[in-house]
Design a protein around this nucleic acid. Sequence first.
DNA 1: ATGCTTTGTTGCACGGAGTGCAAAAATTGC
DNA 2: GCAATTTTTGCACTCCGTGCAACAAAGCAT
Lengths: 223, 223
Amino acid sequence: MLKANHHAEPLGRREQNKIDTRQAIADAAFELARSVGPGAFTVDQVVERAGVSRRTFFNYFPSAEDALTVRMDLFIDLALGVFEQLPADEPLFGAIIRAFTETTRMEGLSQHGELFRMAGADPDLLRAQLHSWERAEARIAEALRARLGTAASELYLTALVGCVMSSTRAALRDWAVHTPPSAADSGRQLEARILAALTMLRDGFADPGALITPHPPDTPARS
Amino acid sequence: MLKANHHAEPLGRREQNKIDTRQAIADAAFELARSVGPGAFTVDQVVERAGVSRRTFFNYFPSAEDALTVRMDLFIDLALGVFEQLPADEPLFGAIIRAFTETTRMEGLSQHGELFRMAGADPDLLRAQLHSWERAEARIAEALRARLGTAASELYLTALVGCVMSSTRAALRDWAVHTPPSAADSGRQLEARILAALTMLRDGFADPGALITPHPPDTPARS
DNA sequence: ATGCTTTGTTGCACGGAGTGCAAAAATTGC
DNA sequence: GCAATTTTTGCACTCCGTGCAACAAAGCAT
């Protein structure tokens, strides 16, 4: 187990207030999205819940949907922190997989799945999430660049990161479809899928053999 | 060379008018984006150029940025048409690569690159494009599902398509960075990159060896 | 504590985005 | 040509997103 790298600096009241406000807004937005549905609430409703002014909201987020991507950004923060602590000589795919699984263990997954599922109902939320993945991709590519140095071409690097993210997203999608209610082993279900997808990637998708969920739905994949 | 599958049905005036209007709006939006920059023009300016009412614009597109993704959607139309005509026993990656290269030969690439580069300057356009890629992914997955039948799991299928799109996107990005002006061999440059990225994918990213553009920029990659 | 500087919040105002609705115009079928 | 259908348009309305200036809170020095 890796230590959490908490940045536990003194952190003045200025910084803390901003973090709190940001979180309050994000929480308010999430609760609203959960209760009335994504895209079915206004910024005014959010700020009323969060206890800030309308103008302040837009100081933090450019749109209501962006307040719903905070969780993913934080998730990437964690994952990158984990990744940077892994030994530099560990095999690449192994390190990536470990960074993901280690992170999913400290962060709850249910909300991510819930948000992912919400995106199916609201194009604007979907776009915000895609943008979030894009930002994450850039950040991860950055971290990988630091790890691999100039040994790898830019194309190799960006394509690899893109594929890792795509595979992870496919796993999330599959998981969201086949594990709608919060099942007991929900976490393991997702982990298994991410692992399966990344393994396919490592093998160049040579074997179409069904590892998880054949074609018909409702096959809980006894893993 | 494959035939273009032109759907040359009679096509009444209703249908034709809609197509024309759609195209007029898309063209007007593209010209504006090109001259004043993406995100720097209003819907009113677009509709004035296109010669339609403001309300009509929103009958066709939900936002100004969406009018700029028409080209990519059409590109996918073409590519899918090509893909479906390829022999069913052709190796998967080969078929995908061929579908792409065949399509790039009939469609101009410069506008795609231009739009791609524009997205770096306007978050909303970027989101619209990401959404467009997402739609394309779904459509391609559909086509692949028809081709592979139930032999492949959903996860395999969606992960594969996602990775193909990601690799292509990485190639586009690399190309857009290293080939800013419309160079003479612009088309071949892009083709080479897409091929390189998809080859990396097929090989499971086992070899970080620099195929195109080592690390430093401005290395035209003698192909 | 007191004042001074820096930084974050709020209200206001304004232009633009997006949508429901009903009237008007264009296309189609007969 | 006439009636039915489909598309375009104008209007009105709400909500979004932002520049600006006044205001409040935190930091800093004495």
